[in-house]
Computed example of a mutant assay.
Amino acid sequence: MSGARDPGSASEADAIPPPPGVAPRGRMNAVAFEYGARATTDFLDTHRLSVRTPFQTRGWWRAWIREAAEAEGTTPVLIRMARTDRPTLVVGLQLHQDDSTTLLRPLSWPWADYHEVAEVGDGPPTGPEPDIGGLAEAIDRCQREFGARLELSNLIADGPLLRAMSELGATLRPSETVFRLDLTDPEVVRRVSERRDMRRKRRRIGRLGKLRLTCADTSAQLAARLPTFIELHTQQWGDRPDAVAPFDGGVVDRTFAAVAAEPSSTARLHELWLDETLLAGWFGFWHDRTYYAYRAAYDLGHGRDSPGHLLTAAMVSELAAQGTDTFDLTRGAYAYKLELPCSRAPTMTASREQPCRA
């Protein structure tokens, strides 16, 4: 592999020439790579990031690198692209072998539901327009450095990362459809929380006891509640062939625990209880006025009462009252999402072949 380094080292920042097909500009950019688990976590330990989704927070990246990267057979790579007049951009990638092909995929693929760039600094990424041309140059430099094929999936439509890949002439195609509820629309909230079948099921299960919604949103609370949620999820999904990365008592459990322990990950665990019986839970993230629903489970013994739907209805009402704008059900065209008054949006995949060797 061209440009290989010992894990843990980082390249020195230097000016980068534009890739073929990208017009040169008057201002050159500085680029550096953090390569390997030690270098990438060291960088994340010492820099705050502003991000567009919870899957680029330093908490998510740091936990995934420490607990999952080795098990996934990948080497983490962070691309840093700096200009004096713009925020420093950070692209998280992972390097691995697929038979004889060296591949660069988004960092934490396929665990994360969205992939995008991050910016060094505090607060939401609402500063100057990102330097898309410079970002394209930096990605091209990284691809050539490692002699790898780029396969970047689940990119946000019209986001900086997709725009940079388009500037590089990458092949673009739809990735997966994501589903979202607009919690600023009172009619959407009403249709989810007060639809007839939900009222009927709440009345029926309410005869057995009192329903209550709880939310663990601190590291200590999450540490206390996560094992019970994992047990519930395992009971529902453990033997199903369509389960994606089910809890395994090992790396998956440790990664979720590590994410939950990171305050910057913005993890939340909502639970619906019938007296002291846990009916359903949803592990997700609250970021930038959006709730991202990541992994759900419910008690199969109460399946006829649709505890997952009851949990969703309760969460929508509470989150809307708290000022949340969007309930993001993330990827996957599951039947329960199709029943809800969701909007749909595609994510995109961008592919670029390995560079020709001289």
Score class of each variant (00 low, 15 high):
11 S>M: 06
349 T>W: 04
154 N>Q: 14
302 H>N: 08
289 R>N: 11
73 G>A: 02
342 C>D: 01
83 R>T: 08
95 L>W: 12
33 F>A: 13
355 P>E: 02
239 D>M: 10
59 G>A: 03
163 R>A: 15
174 P>F: 09
209 G>I: 04
312 T>H: 10
9 S>N: 11
343 S>C: 08
82 A>R: 14
164 A>D: 01
285 F>R: 06
270 H>S: 07
233 H>V: 07
226 L>Q: 02
121 G>D: 04
20 P>F: 07
100 S>V: 13
60 W>R: 08
358 A>M: 11
230 I>C: 09
208 L>S: 14
229 F>I: 07
59 G>L: 07
331 R>P: 02
92 G>L: 06
269 L>I: 01
148 A>M: 06
18 P>E: 12
203 R>I: 02
13 A>Y: 05
331 R>F: 03
288 D>C: 04
164 A>P: 08
201 K>W: 06
180 R>Y: 03
323 G>N: 03
120 V>N: 08
277 T>V: 13
214 T>N: 08
94 Q>L: 00
311 L>P: 10
185 D>H: 03
169 G>R: 05
195 R>M: 06
177 T>W: 07
319 L>G: 00
195 R>Y: 11
268 R>D: 00
341 P>V: 00
187 E>H: 13
68 A>Q: 09
236 Q>L: 15
280 A>G: 08
352 R>A: 11
160 P>W: 00
346 P>W: 10
321 A>I: 06
144 R>S: 15
176 E>Q: 14
107 L>Q: 01
172 L>Q: 14
250 G>V: 09
68 A>D: 09
170 A>M: 05
337 K>D: 05
324 T>H: 05
51 V>A: 08
243 A>G: 09
